[in-house]
Design a binder for these strands. Sequence first.
DNA 1: GCTCTGCGCAGAGGA
Length: 888
Amino acid sequence: MNVRGPVVEARDARTVETSRGTSELAEVLVRPERGAGDPVQVTLWGKWTETADLLEAGMELLVTDVEKGEFRGETQYATTGESAVVVEPDFLVDVTDIRGWVQCPRIYYLNKLSGVPLKYPVVKGTVVHEVFDDLLRGRDLAQSIDERVAEAALDIGLLGETADAVAEDVRQNAAAIQGWLQQGALGETDSWRSEQTLLSERFGIKGRADAVRRGTPVELKTGKNTSRDPRFQDKVQAACYALLLADDVAEAPDTGTLLYTKNTALDRSEASGDLSPAKDFSIGPGFLQFVLRQRNEIAAAEYDLTVPTGYEADAKCEYCFEQDTCMVVAGRLDQESKAGQIGEPLPDEERAYFERFYRAIEAERREVHAEYRKLWEQSAAERADDDRALIDLEPLGREGVSGGRWRLSARRTSDAVSKIREGDRVLASDGHPTRGTAELATVESLGEEVVVVADEPLDLRRVDVYPSEIGVDRRLSGLHDAVLRGDPDRKDVLFGRRDPAFDGDERTYIDNNAAQNEAVNRAVTAEDFALVHGPPGTGKTYTLARTVRALVEDGERVLLSAFTNRAVDNAIEALEEQGFTDVVRWGSESGVREDMQEYRLERSGDPEERAGALREARVIAATTAACGSRALKAQSFDVAVVDEAGQLTEPGTFLAANLADRFVLVGDHEQLPPVVRAENDLQESLFERLIETYPDAGVMLDRQYRMSQRVQYFSSREFYDGALRPASGEVAARRLADLPGVDADVLPPELRDPVSFVDPDGTATGNSNPAEADRVAEIVAAYREAGVDADDIGVIAPFRAQVAEISRRLPDVAVDTVDRFQGSAKEVIVVSFVATGDLDSPIFEDHRRVNVALTRAKRALALVGDEGALRSVPFYERMLEWAARPER
DNA sequence: GCTCTGCGCAGAGGA
């Protein structure tokens, strides 16, 4: 049996005499039943006292396989030989992080801050691993090497290596693998699984094993290992996989294999007797418990964000590759470090800033981990109304595709809504993501049929969102690069020690819109940064494209970035419309829009040629997250032009800005804010902060080309101090009746005015409102009757459930949530507010979302909702008054 | 109790 709950008190360890001699123990008070029960005492024996030393009141503790006892009428628990003690089990520690921590806790910390840079041994190692995987799948060696080297062409080229040299290197490593595979004992009776994703609910560990042979882990290492025994951290890594495979210390495999592919030639020359690159080693329960205690040290350090010093373990700094970085980071942030410090500490405000955002990013990481927890927390039945999974699928079949992968398909048995989209990484399983057979897969299509591509075949019955920490990791490296490695001159402006500078003559780039022309001038003459505030319909993307062209004409190299792929593609489209096509689009195939694929940089091919295509590009377009990728981090630019900057967190903005000498932020902080999971400092964008600090560095585009006067009035008054105005009399006077084929007189009286409000008298059940959906459908039908094309109508609702409800009634019309409407517009917009009764639940969480919804309309806007509910909030009351007064 | 996008997944290694 297990005990789990928050720690109430952890007493100091002490030594006691038992019948078997002297032992250590530590007593811990835990409040079980999710913190609701009475505290119970758990005695941690022996080495687990080391874990007990890490505990603080409030930390979650899990002790498995405890022994129950009674003392003075109280029930007590104690560890047994089988027990595992797990600190903060919900914090999923990566196997590679445990490996790093064992080498040195500072290495773990430094890897987290800056990631792994582009280096030859890493790139080669990756290719050898892929070839290993191919060999296990029975592919031809020569073909595999050619293909895998070609796929890595861009990295190889950026490193200045040739395909032939890398292929030769890989071939030598592969020879060791093949030799080992061909040894008789490892013949056809072996059962193999390669590249297996593993998650452990019990131990709070996750990772991906290179291979599993007859249930035991095999870990491939392509580096040098001159000693006879496996490297300690390699054994730790393999032992982690052993834990993950069993989910129980007693049942874990008791051996592991480390395959050092560089060893054959080395051993032969030294005639050492051990010709095999494979080193088997035993994994005893004591070792598994050691590994778990290391994992607990990480979880405990992350609980209160303790920065490791290097003294926690027997780290030897003299041979460490990270020594210089370690000392520089310690010096800059004035951290205690075993290696020492170099350089001057950062000014206090920069250190405080770093600290604040570091905490905020780590809070986000915890939220991602909470999503992993959801994978196993709920039973299949409960997950029926969870939008993170598609359940109860009926398997339709499987087919082998290139690269030894499998395409799996299934039929849906319900029309439940989910957040899973095409191109997403998911866990495909035959019933349960952690208890059944599960494989990491990519969603290919999501119609009636669900199709995914996975490494192994299985009966597809369920698909779960697979959370990723990469966004968190990227933002952390953006923060690190900006503050610790950032240009001091730029930081003077970012930290308010100097005003941003501008230099250069005013030129005419756009002759019919003064604000747009001013915006391009600011951007071109900025020595630090410029800010372009573009409310709805003001030609923000046009101005941005004109800015990029002006910069290129001046001989600058430009990074064109934005938060979403959609915005990046829109910006390229705007450049195209202005006759400029000298752009390289960096991004994944599924992220880039179909008609922009021609600009996309293919990463495989000839190394020199691929690297040249990237290096020589005058304009590179990528999402900010992609700017944190290794290849783009190796590029530098004169100017970064960033769209949708209002949706970016500060560290997210830095990912693009760090790559350039100057930056231009384009956005609107009165529209969608950054997407953040936890409440913290990441909620405000750098764009918004800079516009508030340096209003003079910005230009607001004040003429909008989209909405009629009547439609734009409320948004202009509420969000832009009335400064947003129609660009011309024609725009201001736009009416539905001006559209070809439209007869506005046919409309029912309540829809005659360009802005109308209708109360359908519905009732919200959960996040949908069927009666309101009916009314929305009638309203759309009325517009259609009056001659409006289905393509010209859009429906916006705050919740996916209501979107689904309305979509069922209106298959031909675009129905979506606000977020997915941002950036586009329709002649007619119908907004469904769903909520009824009172408004204790926020409808559009943030009024800025309402701003987006209302400003999608060009000529007509129909608001549908419960009048009583809306009137209970002043903002919505003002909205209803505007709808009720046609003179505005 | 809601909404949402991104990320070549995670890990590849150097005395």
